[in-house]
Structures are given as structure tokens and as C-alpha cells.
């Protein structure tokens, strides 16, 4: 799905937990996520801390979208 959208020229950042899969299928901008059932959250944190964590991941994703890449890049 990432590639099919990226093909049209729209940059796509893939937030995913299993980075090797994302690398194998060919996403170009990858941001690692927390866990499979809650990629952008962590239920063991308080509501506020969890949202901060989510903000941090989204910030990473935005950083990826504003960074020129010439090959597959993981934004840790």
C-alpha cells in the first residue's frame, strides 16, 4: 500500500512495528512503532504520558516526511 501511494509522488511515511517487513516490502520512510496491537500507544502509561509518546512518534514521522531520502531509511 505504501508503495502504491508513493508511486504517485505523494511521500508516505510508514509507522510500523515490524520494521523488517516494511523494509522487505519496500517502504522508503519508516518509523518504528511500539508494539503490534498498539503501534502508537502504550497502555501501561498514564493517559498523558501515552499521548506524549504518540506525539513523539508522530513528530518522527513528520521529520521523515520533511527529510529527503534516496533509499530506504529508518527514522529511529
Amino acid at each position: 500500500m505504501v508503495k502504491e501511494i508513493e508511486k504517485t509522488g505523494i511521500p508516505v511515511v510508514h509507522i510500523c512495528t515490524v520494521v523488517p517487513i516494511s523494509l522487505t516490502v519496500g517502504a522508503n520512510r519508516i518509523v518504528p512503532a511500539v508494539a503490534i496491537p498498539h503501534p502508537l500507544g502504550n497502555p501501561s502509561l498514564s493517559f498523558e504520558d501515552e499521548k506524549k509518546l504518540r506525539e513523539h512518534i508522530v513528530e518522527k514521522a513528520l521529520e521523515a516526511l520533511t527529510t529527503e531520502v534516496d533509499s530506504q531509511t529508518v527514522f529511529e
Binding site: M1, V2, E4, I5, K7, T8, I10, P11, V12, V13, H14, I15, C16, T17, V18, I21, S22, A33, I36, P37, P39, L40, V58, A61, L65
Partner: peptide, 17 residues
């Protein structure tokens, strides 16, 4: 993607579990 382009979307965040 076709719809996104028609709607003027410039970037996509795609999340996977």
C-alpha cells in the same frame, strides 16, 4: 491514492500493526 491526489493531499502517514 487516486482519491488522495484528487483531494489535494500532499503527504500520507500509513500505520501498520
Amino acid at each position: 491514492a487516486k482519491e488522495l491526489i484528487a483531494d489535494g493531499v500532499q503527504a500520507v502517514i500509513l500505520t501498520s500493526t
